[in-house]
Design a protein around this nucleic acid. Sequence first.
DNA 1: AGTCTTTGTGTCATTTTTACACTTTCCAAA
DNA 2: TTTGGAAAGTGTAAAAATGACACAAAGACT
Lengths: 251, 251
Amino acid sequence: MHNNLKKIGSELNPNVSVDCVIFGFDLEKLTVLVIDRGEISAEKGPRLALPGNLIYDNENLDQAASRVLEELTGLKDIYLEQVGAFGDPFRIHKESDREWLKSIRAQPDARVITVAYFSLVKIEDYLPHASSFAKNAGWAPVNEISELAFDHFEILQAAKDKLKQKIKIQPIGFNLLPEKFTLSQLHRLYESILDKPLDKRNFRRKIQKLNILSNLKEKQRGVPHKPSSLYEFNEEKYQELTQMGFDNFGF
Amino acid sequence: MHNNLKKIGSELNPNVSVDCVIFGFDLEKLTVLVIDRGEISAEKGPRLALPGNLIYDNENLDQAASRVLEELTGLKDIYLEQVGAFGDPFRIHKESDREWLKSIRAQPDARVITVAYFSLVKIEDYLPHASSFAKNAGWAPVNEISELAFDHFEILQAAKDKLKQKIKIQPIGFNLLPEKFTLSQLHRLYESILDKPLDKRNFRRKIQKLNILSNLKEKQRGVPHKPSSLYEFNEEKYQELTQMGFDNFGF
DNA sequence: AGTCTTTGTGTCATTTTTACACTTTCCAAA
DNA sequence: TTTGGAAAGTGTAAAAATGACACAAAGACT
């Protein structure tokens, strides 16, 4: 099938980039990893931007997104999902963007299409201040972001929508939680993503009925209140469910 | 905001294309518009492909998709939705593809990212044989397609999935039906897209309860059985529904 | 011992879903 | 004109899911 491959160097493709919306959950609210472009004049627009980079000609889109994610956080094998392609003609066009563009190795007058991904990360796995990677990256609460550089705010919005939609169908939320978590944490996570309150008892009933959680015989320790049971996501039980035609959490 | 625009000609961008999955519905089953690349040696892979083309540097992605759709069918203002971006490195690599590539004006050794769209067309609005456009395009039943050129089969699959998902949430199916249609036709349409049988009475009850159809005081004529009432999709009533928080058909 | 904070639990009324079969209406052919 | 074929159209009952709602239990801290 793949005969006659052309030999081409691993060059950056000046026309296609990937941007990553990296979600985290601080056990209270949904957060996203943003990069501070530093002190810039008002002309340059918002300081904060999503991590992203041009793609290499010898990697596919998913690989490029993984690479960007790993370059920034050092994390591998992370849940990644494509959001879609973005790009008005000449969306990068300000003289004042030149410096920034140079830093991501794009040509200022190039037309760049960007393919956006969202990823779900256990926030404990990436503590920016402890990391040797980009000191200028940090977690920001999603709901407190009101603007981002370039078209990144639009991309963030699309990523939130996609996540919201996806979590109604597949149990991907566990990627944002520690291995062992409480039902209350899961409950807050769903409320954060769906952006609406869910009745506590009804939520617990619904989740428990699905039977995709293992109740570890272990409790929280050191909390100044009644300690909660800890649970683990059970992949096998979830597979059974899907094989029975399950495809909707009903939120 | 948009100062300092670069002046750039309306050149084709050799790195980015759009492909369109144009769905139709022949009142029996879901169909898709495919292009016959003509007699080619077995080496060249499947004859059938999705319509697509490179994008111009002065149009955005949505515009490019509209253009491709219009160039092929002559139709404007058609429902279009992005499916996502596709593209392995060097996915176009066969010597035998050169001729075809020339015809779509791509360079044989270029790396092409393709952004896929799906669109919904009233099949009656585009009858290939009556059209002066591409004589080599035609409607093919979606379920009878087992292979397509390039990565188009994968794209078709993704488009079907997206359509299936989307129709559970928004009443976009009407774009595939004539202005006036019967409940049975709508029923068959949903079964085709969701790819599963739906109980007739339950389907009708569910649709009617939503109250987004206007029952025209008009019946089918000339059918060899009891004639059906004709209905029209009522956009205003649907808007009311959404404003009341409706976002799920529950299929 | 008392206070604070969060966990964890059940019921009832309403709504939604599912499964299921027969009569009506028109056309066409005998 | 009668008859047969073919799809339209309609109701009900049982089961399941949803939504609303309040208080006791467990541990930490003072």
